[in-house]
Design a binder for these strands. Structure first.
Lengths: 129, 129
DNA sequence: GTGCAACTTGAAGTCAACTTCAAGTCAACG
DNA sequence: CGTTGACTTGAAGTTGACTTCAAGTTGCAC
């Protein structure tokens, strides 16, 4: 046997994605085409890892296009451009964390003052131009 | 004069939104209809604060529907349901922060080991069912 | 071999969040 | 008074990320 080769339904079940999503990822180039058994996709378990990485990056706010570039960057030899790309992404992630933390403080503050708070929270920066 | 009443273009310029977006927010109920001068919207500067709060919440990952509910919740008297809603949002924000921080560690790790890292980062949790 | 669930494809549909378009209105300048 | 530019409306178009559909094929149990 060629070790455990999972059909798309099994991949879907384990990742919580729908088969259609997995096929979609393949179509847009996020997943390389996998070997077929009689036309049907057979996945190596490592696909689970890849899919999980995609979900995480996505929940962290990245578009499929960005995630794709992130994956592609790491395949380039010499590590020329990819380091800069990862650093750029790092900046983005940190900005996201900052914003989420500001939101957290806003929500906490609005819990504290108790009334019409969120709408008037002083943590929101109003443009002054 | 009825204090500074800003036309939609000015609101757009200051918030970085397009006028069409501001009208859209009104249409979907995120912004209450404002007074008109000869058919044209005239905004109180407080609208800038509201719009900024919207942008922040949006960047923190909330849909317009969710933001709307957040605003509506704070208007209910007694603070009955809105406290629970804000607390639920808090949980969501914290989950987002966690995920973004995992992304951050993944990216850092992939910078450290230098090669095909992001795709194989051990920080990604693979489902085991 | 029969049947059924799970798979295949391409095309079309959906949803959010807008943007663009067409056609028209209004204020102000010269 | 004419025209310019910012505004108005409703309707239709766009993008990303999928899902749904129709029509057909395959894998496996019985």
């Amino acid at each position: 046997m060629t070790t455990n080769a999972l059909p798309i339904g099994e991949i879907a079940r384990r990742t919580g994605l729908r088969p259609s999503a997995v096929r979609y990822y393949e179509r847009v180039g996020l997943l390389r085409p996998v070997p077929r058994a009689g036309g049907q996709r057979r996945y190596d378990p490592s696909a689970l890892h890849r899919l999980s990485a995609i979900r995480l990056a996505q929940r962290a706010g990245f578009s499929l296009e960005e995630i794709k570039r992130l994956f592609e960057a790491e395949r380039r030899p010499g590590g020329a451009g990819w380091r800069a790309l990862v650093e750029a992404k790092l900046d983005e992630v940190r900005a996201r964390i900052d914003e989420a933390q500001t939101m957290e403080r806003m929500l906490l503050e609005s819990l504290d003052c108790g009334c019409e708070a969120f709408d008037e929270c002083p943590l929101v920066e109003v443009p002054n131009g």
